[in-house]
């Protein structure tokens, strides 16, 4: 009986070791080498060359900036919308399950399928979105070529796919708030909006923090949407090339796997910094409570 707990967890740690941890370390190792897609066997030590290369590359900083801005304009509206929708779903509704399933439906759509559809919806000439905009007097926008337009379009795909999912997470947390908290504030004369601000939001704080972390991780690795919307360069002038996409482009389109490894490790370092900041914020919050 003694050995069995380890036997039960072994499959997971074997898979994680072989396909997660060891590759992660090797990615670091390859990032110090020149590895070309055309000659996989030949790996030459180059030290920090790949990183220096990135540091002085405009495209790297551009990708970092795009990852950040797209992350911001996809995450913030998404979570605010999710909060609002969760609030509505938390009322006593007729057909409550149906509403929830409908909100979650975009989650069933893959990144690839969703992006193919949105690319057509956003097409410059004859696309649904430009057609709808012309009713309010907006001239056709060349979404794929414009700077902010491309970023907006890519973000809208993320928002569409993930808002319902986050709404369900908020809804679950809202339903765990004890009713007497609302009752006592109601006795104090609080209206619905004040209850939402002074009861719901504070009680949801850990959940909100969690969704922020998860969305941040997701935003850091954003890749499929910009790839299918505008190719591996993320638009003709890299308008929406993210770090994840830049890595794919360098590694498998240009064929420089060493540099791609360095980009991957840069992403990892950025995530570690985010995690550290999050931990500090978390500790602060807990102390202040």
């Amino acid at each position: 009986m003694k050995a069995s707990p380890y036997a039960f967890i072994t499959p997971f740690f074997l898979v994680f070791g072989a396909f997660g941890l060891v590759p992660l370390l090797y990615t670091g190792w390859y990032s110090l080498h020149s590895v070309q897609l055309s000659s996989l066997d030949k790996q030459t030590w180059v030290g920090l060359e790949n990183y220096k290369n990135l540091w002085s590359s405009d495209f790297f900083w551009n990708a970092l900036k795009n990852t950040f801005t797209i992350g911001l304009i996809s995450t913030v509206p998404q979570l605010l919308l999710a909060l609002g929708i969760a609030h509505l779903l938390n009322y006593k509704l007729r057909g409550s399950t149906l509403w929830r399933v409908v909100m979650l439906t975009p989650y069933a759509t893959s990144v690839a399928a969703a992006t193919l559809v949105f690319t057509l919806l956003y097409s410059w000439d004859g696309g649904m979105i430009n057609w709808l905009l012309h009713f309010v007097g907006v001239d056709p926008i060349n979404w794929r070529e414009s700077d902010w337009g491309g970023q907006f379009a890519v973000s809208s795909i993320v928002i569409w796919r993930w808002t319902g999912y986050n709404a369900l997470i908020y809804l679950a947390a809202m339903q765990a708030i004890p009713a007497d908290l609302y009752e006592s504030t109601a006795l104090d004369g609080a209206n619905r909006w004040q209850q939402f601000r002074h009861v719901t939001i504070p009680m949801l704080r850990p959940t909100i923090l969690f969704t922020v972390v998860v969305s941040t991780i997701g935003a850091t690795q954003l890749f499929g949407e910009p790839l299918l919307f505008g190719g591996s360069k993320g638009g003709s002038e890299h308008q929406y090339q993210t770090l994840g996409l830049y890595m794919y482009d360098q590694g498998w389109i240009i064929g420089n796997l060493g540099k791609a490894s360095a980009i991957a490790w840069s992403m990892f370092l950025i995530l570690l910094i985010v995690a550290a900041v999050n931990m500090l914020v978390n500790r602060r919050l807990r102390k202040s409570q």
Binding site: W99, M174, A176, I177
Partner: peptide, 29 residues
């Protein structure tokens, strides 16, 4: 207590807003 959070009945505006979001959810598909 599941469902203990808020058990206020939804008004017509809630249904209208939810219907709009449902449309946005389903329309692309």
């Amino acid at each position: 207590m599941i469902g203990a959070g808020r058990q206020l009945h939804a008004g017509p505006i809630t249904y209208v807003v939810l219907a709009v979001f449902s449309l946005i959810s389903l329309a692309p598909l």
